[in-house]
Every structure is written in C-alpha cells, then in structure tokens.
Design a protein around this nucleic acid. Structure first.
Length: 667
DNA sequence: AATTGGTGGATTTTT
DNA sequence: TCCACCAATT
C-alpha cells in the first residue's frame, strides 16, 4: 500500500488524487512531474479502475519506457493492459485495426525520413520535373508542416501542391504512411466514422498526457476527439523545445478554453537541483519574454559552482570529460550512470564516444545516428518490408540491386516505366516482365528478376505467420550472401565489412530477443516492423546501469543526473546558428533548450567549449555561448587555463587509489 | 549498360 | 570525416 500523503507534497498529492474531471498541471523542471503521473496511475489502479481504461501518452519512446518501468516498480503489478505509449505508437495501434476503413491494408509500411526523400524523388520523376532543381529536404519539411497544420498553402506554391498531391497518392498506392499520417489518419478515421471514435472514447476513460507543451495542433485534435472529461495534461512552457516539429505550447491555452472547468495545479518545488544550479537556470530562462512567470524553489542550499572549461579542440574537450568522470568517480564515488553528457548535435557525440573508448569508460548512447538507419540494417529491413508489403515500391527498389544482381539504373528505369504503363506496383511489373517475356529487358536481367521474385515469394511464405523469425531471417541473409556483398562493397577495408556484418547479426539477435520476450503477445513480422519504425535506437541491451549517459539535450528531457556535462557550449552551437536563421522566436527556444540542459543536473554542472572547432573542412575560432553571460557571475568558476593539479587535489586522487587497491587486495 | 572511382558539399533537434 | 551524386571506364 502506498502512503500517498507522506510520499508526495500537497500539490503533488492534489494532482495524484484528482482523477475525475479535467486537470492541468503546470510543472516546473524537477518538480516531480513523472512522479505525479506514475503515482496517479498507481492511485487509479488502487481505486479499482481497470488498466485497460487508462491511456498515458508521452512524447518520446524513452519517456514512455521510463514511465512504464516506474509504474511497474511502484505497483509491483503486471501491466498487460495498461497503455503507456508515444502519440505515434498509439496512432499505429489504431491504424493497425482501423486503417482498412480508409483504403489502406493493415500490412502498411511506415516510411522514415530517408524513405520519404526517396518517395519525393520518385514523385518528381513521375511528374516529369527535374529532381536536381528541387530541395528535397525542404519539400519534405513543407509537406510535414501542411499535414501538421503548421502551414497552409500559399498562392505561389502551385508546383509544391502538385508534388504534394502526387506524394499523397503514391503513399496510398504503396500502402505506406509517413510519420505525420500516424496522427493525421486516426483523426480522419475518427471524424469520418463517429462509431469508431465512440468505441475508443468509451474504451479509454482516463487519459493523461506528459510533456503537453510539446504536443502539436494535430495531436491536440486527436486528444479532443478521444477525451471526454477525465483528462489530465502535464507540461511546462519553459521546456517547450519541439516547436520546429509542430509543437505548440498554446495548446495549454486551448486546453483551458476547451475544458473551462479544469482544475489548475502548479508544481513549483524543485527537489532535484541545488540552489546554485536552480538560480543559474532561473536567471537564464528569465531572459525569455514569452513565458509564464514561475518561481522554482529548492531545499538544497548552495552546492558546487558551475564549472566552465576552455579546451583547444573537441578531442581535448572529450578527453577532459573522460578524465573528469574518472576523477569524480574515484574521489567522490559516483557511479558511471550518475553522469550525463548532453550535446547539442548528434554529430558531436562521436568525439565523446572515442574518448570514452580509449579511456575505458562504459557509456550508453541515446539517439544518435540510429541503429536502424545504418545502411546495412536498412538493407535487411527493406527486404523484410518488401516481403511484408509487396506494394511498397520504395523498399523494393532499394534492394532490387542489393546485393548486385545486374539490375542497374537503366533496368530500373524500364521496370518503373512498365509499372507506370500498367498502373501496377513494381512488384507486379516484375511478375509481368517474367511472364510476358517483355523484350525491353534483356534475358539475363529477366532471369535475375525471376530469381529475385522467387526469393521474395519463398520468404513471404517463410516469414509470414510463422514462429522463429530470427532463424528464418538469418537464412535469408545467408542466401543473398550479404556478407559477400559487404566484402565486395568495402574493398581493402574488411574491418568495415566485419563491423557492418556484426550489426546485421546484432539486428537478428535483437529480433530473437524480441520474439522470445514473454511479454510479447504478437511476435509476427508485421508487429516487428511496426515497432522498429518508431524506435530510434535499439534499446534491447537493458543493462543500462553502470554506464555514462551520452545523448542530445533534446533526448535528455525528463531525465536527471548528478553530474551534467554540457560540451560545445559555444556561439553557433548553443544557440545553434542554423536554428537562429529560421525565425525570430528560435532564440527563445534555444534558450529553453539550454535551460533544459541545466535543470537536468542534481549536484554539479560542468560546461566546456573549444578555442578552435572544425566545421567541415575548415577550422575556425570559436567563442563561448552568449547564454553563459546570463548566468550570474558568482555562480560560475572559470577554468580557462589548464591549471596544474593542486597538491590537495592530487592527494585526494592518490588516497582514493590507495583505498581502492587495499580493498581489492583484501577481497 | 553496370560499376568504379572521384569530386565536391555539407553537417539541428525526433516520431 | 563521411556521404551523395557524377562522369569515365570496362
């Protein structure tokens, strides 16, 4: 039995126990937001509300997993029927059951950013436009904005609209959806079929949304369609860092308008950070004009000053971080998992990673170039997708010549032409070529096509609806001789080939673990493909304990660490130059991002920057982030020169070593 | 007609 | 440094 009154402060208690009716919780950083949500779920279960009626939505997979883990820990129950998921994963869940109502098949494919780019290129070709004269990324961005309700078409965008229509039609023809569709299509279904909406409305009686400030207009629409009155949203306008993705913290205002009887609860007590850290963060965020005034209080008076270090280049910076971690661990007995290294860009994780490898520090990367976006992984996944969904031209084309089977550019052009003429998928066009003995394709190529189609057909038989996916996929990888392909593609670099093949093996291992997981009630190929489309990274390796956490600031939201490193705290990076180009409001968003980074820390913040930084091929001088000037001078200790170790410090390190050695000997 | 090797360009954040 | 696209080569 949980003692709610004792384990929660009065505001938290109020939030936890107000389970009937709409509730808006404004929760400052470190004020126990996740705690409120997890206790709230536990409280509901205690009150006898069935798990199946509860829906908790978060923003990232990481947050969803964290929440589910905490509830499980708190309640000591199996949570089979509790829905804790991201908006997108929830969308997939609905679409899997309901998408047939709007003309897709349930084995639809989810396209990621790369697939999306490929598809847009296809559309341009289809329309007879010159691919080179378009910026694909910006088209993708526009399409997403249109779908999310961020932009509306303007008069001069006739061409873009045409491409967009083609894009939408192709998605449907390929039986595919993009990320935005995962939110937009459920809305469409709920609007067009009120009976379906009512089914879900009656099913989920208690809805909770974490990080509400990051919901997009469309996600909010979905909520409105779904929620009756028992809805609780939790957010903090100061931590809104996803506006580039359509997040709109004005949803907080909409919420108050749409549920005027809502109860408002403000969590302002911070239990996480020392007052040094909190004062610094508060004074940074106070520079933002567009915000609700908040006054966070902490009982942890004082604490270490914020260290700011200057190093020569990013390698030295990374080595410094590695050394600092070892020292803190040795002297103050921190565990590795109590450190967080928060970077602005994915690319800068590489240096940190290399430094940690050579220093022998165990680390865990979150995000980054996703495992599933590596070429070798995408190749194998493309096979699986093409097998699961024969209409998926994009994935089929991706592997039609991988490994090389003599079907190059020209052949593909002809095949596409035939598909277009027949108004069929590429897959059907290939079949047509085989049976019609079409003379546009040479007989050797036809032979290859026949073997390729046969391969897909056989594995469709093997993989659909059968147990032992991993073994069968391994067989597929062997049969196409992917290893031989890697070797031939990486001449005089068998290290790279080995590494890539190792990744493929890890993928297969991951599948095996997934299908053998006792909590997995649907170990089918479709389920697997749906799942990995939404997971940015392989989070199979559960032993996260004992490892330093390296991630982007975005990914760190909702987490906390005793000691936080913020490398690359330089002008042009934090705030990011590219972001500032975008709009006038981005400076405030970048400041919120910095605020999020600062407030992750419990005890100590170590900021660093480089004198010189490489940008592509050139090396330029770098300056500290202007945000540092917004931290009161008395909270910072500057370490601009490599000061020699003081005698006191070196004694501390030496003593720690001695104790450690003694302990080892006595064991 | 496929493949190889070269060149040039570019690098925000996530589902 | 790594990757995508392009032009010459087999």
């Amino acid at each position: 039995m949980i003692d709610y009154r004792n384990e929660l402060n009065p505001e938290q208690y109020e939030g936890v126990t107000s389970i009937e009716g709409p509730v808006l919780i404004i929760a400052g950083a470190g004020s126990g937001k996740t705690r409120v949500i997890t206790y709230r779920i536990a409280y509901m279960l205690e009150k006898g509300i069935p798990q199946s009626q509860i829906l908790a939505l978060t923003f990232t997979n990481k947050a969803a997993k964290e929440m589910a883990d905490r509830v499980r820990e708190l309640t000591q129950r199996k949570l089979q029927n509790l829905t804790v998921s991201t908006f997108h994963a929830f969308g997939v869940q609905i679409l899997r059951k309901e998408i047939h109502n709007i003309g897709w098949k349930e084995n639809f494919t989810i396209y990621d950013e790369v697939d999306k780019h490929e598809l847009i290129k296809e559309c341009l070709k289809e329309l007879g436009l010159v691919v080179q004269s378009f910026d694909i990324a910006s088209l993708a961005y526009t399409f997403s904005g249109i779908k999310n309700g961020q932009f509306v078409w303007e008069g001069h965008q006739k061409t873009e609209q045409k491409i967009f229509n083609e894009y939408q039609a192709s998605l449907k023809a390929y039986n595919a959806v993009d990320f935005d569709d995962l939110i937009v299509l459920p809305i469409r279904i709920f609007t067009e079929f009120p009976a379906i909406r009512d089914k879900y409305r009656n099913h989920y009686r208690y809805i909770m949304v974490d990080e509400f400030q990051d919901t997009s207009i469309e996600q909010y629409k979905l909520l409105r369609l779904l929620a009756d009155k028992n809805i609780c949203v939790v957010g903090d306008d100061d931590q809104s860092i996803y506006s580039w993705r359509g997040a709109n913290y004005e949803n907080i205002l909409s919420f108050e308008k749409d549920w005027p009887e809502r109860k408002l609860i403000t969590l302002y007590r911070n239990y996480r950070s020392t007052t040094t850290i909190l004062d610094a963060a508060n004074s940074v965020i106070a520079h933002n004009k567009n915000r609700k005034e908040k006054n966070l209080q902490s009982p942890h008076e004082g604490g270490s000053l914020i260290e700011v270090h200057l190093k020569d280049n990013e390698i030295q910076e990374a080595d410094f971080i590695a050394a600092a971690i070892r020292e803190h661990k040795l002297v103050e007995h921190f565990r590795y998992d109590q450190f967080g290294v928060l970077v602005r860009t994915n690319s800068s994780m590489r240096f940190i990673e290399e430094a940690f490898i050579s220093a022998g520090i165990p680390y865990k990367l979150t995000g980054g170039t996703s495992f599933f976006q590596r070429k070798e992984i995408k190749d194998i996944i493309s096979y699986l997708r093409a097998i699961a969904n024969p209409d998926d031209d994009i994935n089929l084309l991706r592997i039609i010549n991988v490994p090389r089977r003599g079907l190059g550019r020209k052949s593909v052009e002809i095949i596409s032409e035939i598909a277009r003429a027949n108004e069929s998928s590429i897959h059907d066009a290939l079949n047509y070529i085989i049976y019609s003995q079409d003379q546009h394709i040479g007989s050797t190529a036809r032979g290859e096509i026949a073997m390729f189609i046969d391969l897909l057909a056989r594995y469709r038989e093997e993989l659909l609806g059968k147990r032992g996916l991993a073994k069968r996929i391994k067989k597929l990888v062997d049969e196409i001789d992917y290893w031989g392909y890697l070797v031939s593609e990486n001449p005089n670099n068998d290290k790279a080939a080995k590494w890539k093949f190792l990744n493929v093996e890890r993928l297969i291992q991951g599948i095996e673990m997934w299908e053998q997981d006792p909590d997995n009630f649907d170990p089918t190929l479709f389920a697997y493909l749906n799942r990995i489309s939404l997971v940015s990274r392989e989070d199979q390796d559960e032993e996260s304990g004992g490892k330093v956490n390296v991630m982007t600031i975005h990914a760190s939201k909702g987490l906390e660490f005793d000691i936080v490193f913020i490398p690359g705290c330089e002008e042009g990076i934090i705030p990011h130059a590219r972001s500032l180009e975008e709009s006038a409001s981005s400076l405030e968003e970048e400041r919120r991002l910095f605020y999020v980074a600062l407030t992750r820390a419990r005890k100590k913040i170590i900021i660093s920057g480089c004198r010189m930084r490489r940008r592509g091929s050139t090396t330029t001088e770098s300056a500290f982030s202007p945000f540092l000037e917004e931290i009161p001078e008395n909270l910072i200790t500057w370490k601009l020169e490599d000061a020699p170790l003081t005698e006191e410090d070196s004694n501390k390190v030496w003593d720690a070593w001695k104790t450690m050695l003694n302990n080892k000997q006595s064991k």
